[in-house]
């Protein structure tokens, strides 16, 4: 028995040795994970790359099959042609105004409400909070038809026809969100209450406490809410599709969809428009990547 065992180990040892030697001999000068990550990254980036390539080709080059991976001449006139065919500058301006105003309103309104829900005791607090939480569960499709009718009514009757079709229709219904109120309330509750009490004893009003004590301590949470709201607003499509009827009030996604409908197979023009539509957001994202990523990651942590 024991001799067999010994023989086995004796036989096994050299094999392992050979395997080890072989592994050492074949050791790559770089981490083997690059072999996985390089193709994966090419697939992830390729749509962006191809969009830019097509946007710089002549129409006949784009329709060549098999396709050329690089254009012969860089044709920047596609961009000016796209700008002539649709007002992308206007779309960008609308998107920026809507997204920035929505973010600003959310920060102000959600911070105030979240703080009150976190710290104040007032009649009806529990009921109101539950009501707000219920709206968080309901998908947008349930509320969109009445939201359309309400927004239209406000526009026609209170704002002299401005409401629907005006970019205000994209801002007002999203000026405060249940998610924002809930998210900031949860964050405010984690702050030590002693600072706030000390400020109150020193005679500060509640508004001053919120502005001077609580909000400076809440910069990470406010940045997260701002980043998530901005991404949401910038990329939203279904509500603008319903609420906006004119080109001059279109946001980038809506304008791009209309542009695609009008120039269905003019790929060089479409891709030039597409590059212009996503370039500003991509730039903001790459510059503030760390904040965006941290914000998105935190949604996962609150979710679990």
């Amino acid at each position: 028995m024991s001799t067999v065992d010994l023989a086995k180990t004796a036989a096994a040892a050299p094999i392992r040795g050979v395997a080890g030697a072989r592994r050492r001999r074949w050791k790559l000068p770089f981490s083997p994970w690059h072999l996985v990550l390089v193709p994966a990254t090419i697939i992830l980036i390729f749509p962006f790359f191809w969009m830019i390539v097509t946007s710089l080709e002549t129409p006949s080059e784009a329709l060549r099959f098999p396709p050329d991976l690089t254009p012969h001449v860089l044709r920047f006139t596609n961009y000016s042609d796209a700008l002539k065919a649709a007002p992308f500058g206007r779309f960008f301006w609308n998107s920026a105004v809507v997204a920035l105003t929505t973010v600003a309103c959310n920060l102000v309104f959600c911070a105030a409400a979240g703080y009150a829900f976190a710290r104040f005791r007032f009649l009806g607090r529990g009921a109101l909070f539950v009501l707000i939480m219920i709206t968080l569960m309901v998908p947008f499709q349930v509320t969109m038809i009445p939201q359309f009718l309400i927004t239209k009514w406000i526009g026609v009757n209170l704002l002299a026809g401005a409401g629907i079709g005006h970019i205000g229709a994209l801002i007002v219904p999203n000026a405060a969100t249940a998610f924002g109120v809930f998210f900031l309330r949860q964050f405010f509750r984690t702050l030590p209450i002693e600072y706030e009490e000390a400020a109150r004893v020193d005679g500060a009003t509640r508004l001053t406490v919120l502005m001077k004590v609580v909000l400076p301590l809440s910069a990470p949470a406010l940045a997260t809410l701002a980043a998530l709201t901005f991404l949401d607003s910038w990329n939203s499509f279904l509500w603008p599709l319903i609420a906006i009827t004119s080109t001059s009030a279109s946001t980038l996604p809506l304008g791009l969809a209309t542009f695609q409908g009008a120039h269905a197979t003019e790929w060089t023009l479409l891709m030039a428009g597409n590059v212009m539509s996503l370039a500003p957001m991509m730039l903001v994202f790459l510059l503030a990547q760390r904040y965006f990523v941290r914000s998105v990651a935190s949604t996962g942590l609150t979710g679990t």
């Binding site: 102000v108 309104f109 959600c110 105030a112 409400a113 703080y115 009150a116 829900f117 104040f120 005791r121 007032f122 009649l123 607090r125 109101l128 009501l131 707000i132 219920i134 709206t135 309901v138 349930v142 509320t143 969109m144 038809i145 009445p146 939201q147 009718l149 309400i150 927004t151 007002v172 219904p173 999203n174 000026a175 405060a176 969100t177 249940a178 924002g180 109120v181 509640r206 919120l210």
Partner: peptide, 28 residues
Amino acid sequence: SESLAGWAFVTPASVIILLFGAVPIVWS
């Protein structure tokens, strides 16, 4: 005063969320 402050703080957000979020749930 705390109750008043509470309502003053929550009113703007609540009006928007209830008008465009809660009322539509019942309405639809």
